[in-house]
Amino acid sequence: MFNSPLEQFQILPLLSFGANLFDFSITNAMITTCVSLIFFIFLFFCLSSYGLNCFPTRWQLVLESLYISTAGLIWDSVGPQGQKYFPFLFVIFSFILISNVSGLVPYSFTITSHLIQTMVLALTVFIGVMIICGSTHGFHMLSLFLPGGTSIVLAFLLVPIEIVSYIFKPLSLAVRLFANMMAGHTLLKVIAGFAWAMMGSGGLLLVAHVVPLGVLVILFGLELAVALIQAYVFTILSCIYINDAIVLH
């Protein structure tokens, strides 16, 4: 018998501190966050940029290709004004990528499959974008809510729609990443559950359990692609929002 496919998303306290309102207990989510932040990002970046050389080592090549692809992404979508936001977007990209990929390791924990984590990232981007927009344009920023060339009558209809779509931008940014991760991991668990149940029932099904197992392997490849694509999409949408804030429209 296997457990519910959603059981893998539970946050379990490993060491309990504090009371219910101020709960500082060390959970599996926190440990995974620390591991992916400290171990992967810090250690990986430090080690692969150690002793930089004209003839790069393999690790340096990985780091360089990450750097160049993110830089190219920002250059294509924001242009020269966006270059000062490069460090932030690079950290966002590598954090999401590494937490997505490390979540695919069996028995680990996916940080980005929790709405609270992706919402924090999306709201960070969004509040930053609003500050950029406000500091560069002042009150002129309100023209975000009014597409150019609309008549007064149409404005009464368009402004509420634009405001609602503006509010839903960070929400959809967060929910996209969260739902992709959660759906993918649930799917993997369900397929693995098929194989497990077939293996347990014996007889002819014991042989046939290879079929869902093969599907599981294929889906795992798909999930690896999704982990990369979602990190990319989160970064490129952040770039587009920053571009909207700088240029208005």
């Binding site: 929910v175 739902a179 694509i229 490129i236």
Partner: peptide, 15 residues
């Protein structure tokens, strides 16, 4: 790929 992700997000809202 960007269009794919934006479309897929709508599917995930249904989920």
């Amino acid at each position: 790929i960007l269009g794919f992700a934006l479309t897929e997000a709508i599917a995930l809202f249904a989920l």
